[in-house]
């Protein structure tokens, strides 16, 4: 249930503005790839290109290739909706649907797509996804309560449950812990460790310790200055990146001697 994504020479634009330039990298199956770098260097923008969420913004476009399973995600005739069914996403701020119950939020991928699901299968899916997101024990007695009644950390795990309930191949996480307290963060990091057995995970994070703890490979993005495009500076195994990176900029950033 997981696939690798190979990106080559990817340029990302907002209108005429080149935001990220010339990214070539591979995201391995069944592993966690972390993307780190200073604010505004294009990590999140790049992440959003991997499930074609970038083009939702008016004027935004992408050049280059992102190949998953032999298919270029940006090839002709590829339906972005199909891509997003295979590549799920968890956002920076928890965003459960406010009109739906906890159970309906988990099933949102099914219900919003107007698909019918037998009751027993629906129950099974809800339980499996919530167990997978480490939330089942906390909410199993109140599945009919609104999703927004949960705490921030629980909401974020609900969003993860919602993303994995549709059984994607790849899970993208855009700073999933930046709005959470350390305990919820720990819960989600543990969760990532379990999820990588089944999914390809790509995570954007500002927290270097987090990248070191959870990821197998790390990519460092940087930007030359305001108004310049972001670049992938270097990418390597996480242990190598955090002990002996080959680029000076990476070392400066990781050790906090930036700028």
């Amino acid at each position: 249930m997981s696939k690798r994504i190979d990106v080559s020479d990817l340029n990302v634009y907002y209108g005429d503005f080149l935001a990220v330039e010339g990214v070539t990298m591979a995201m391995e199956a069944r592993s966690v790839t972390a993307l780190i770098g200073p604010s505004g260097c294009g990590k999140s923008t790049f992440l959003r290109t991997l499930n074609r969420m970038h083009e939702v913004i008016p004027g935004a476009r992408v050049e280059g290739k992102a190949v998953m399973d032999g298919v270029d995600l940006y090839g002709k005739g590829v339906d972005p909706v199909e891509v997003r069914r295979q590549v799920g996403m968890v956002f920076q701020r928890p965003n459960p649907f406010p009109t739906m119950s906890i159970a309906d939020n988990v099933l949102a991928g099914v219900k919003l797509n107007n698909r019918r699901m037998p009751r027993a299968l629906a129950q099974e899916t809800i339980e499996k996804a919530l167990v997978g997101a480490n939330l089942w024990n906390e909410v199993k007695d109140r599945l009919e309560r609104p999703g927004s009644s949960l705490s921030g950390g629980q909401q974020q795990r609900l969003c993860i449950a919602r993303a994995i309930a549709v059984e994607p191949q790849v899970l993208l996480m855009d700073e999933p812990c930046s709005a959470l307290d350390p305990i919820s963060t720990l819960a989600i990091e543990d969760l990532m460790n379990e999820l990588k057995n089944d999914y390809t995970i790509v995570i954007v994070t500002h927290n270097m310790q987090q990248a070191a703890r959870v990821s197998d490979r790390t990519g460092f993005f940087n930007i030359a200055g305001t108004g310049k495009p972001g670049h992938l500076i270097e990418m390597d195994d996480t242990s190598v990146m955090f002990s002996s990176p080959s680029e000076k900029a990476t070392e400066d950033y990781i050790s906090g001697r930036f700028g």
């Binding site: 969420m53 909706v81 406010p98």
Partner: peptide, 25 residues
């Protein structure tokens, strides 16, 4: 906008997102 994006990220087409998320909310 986060709700629209949440729906898109689940592979929901735009018109269903409008009917079932935007108008519903």
């Amino acid at each position: 906008n986060e709700l629209r994006e949440a729906a898109y990220a689940l592979g929901v087409p735009k018109w269903l997102t409008i009917v079932k998320v935007v108008l519903r909310t």
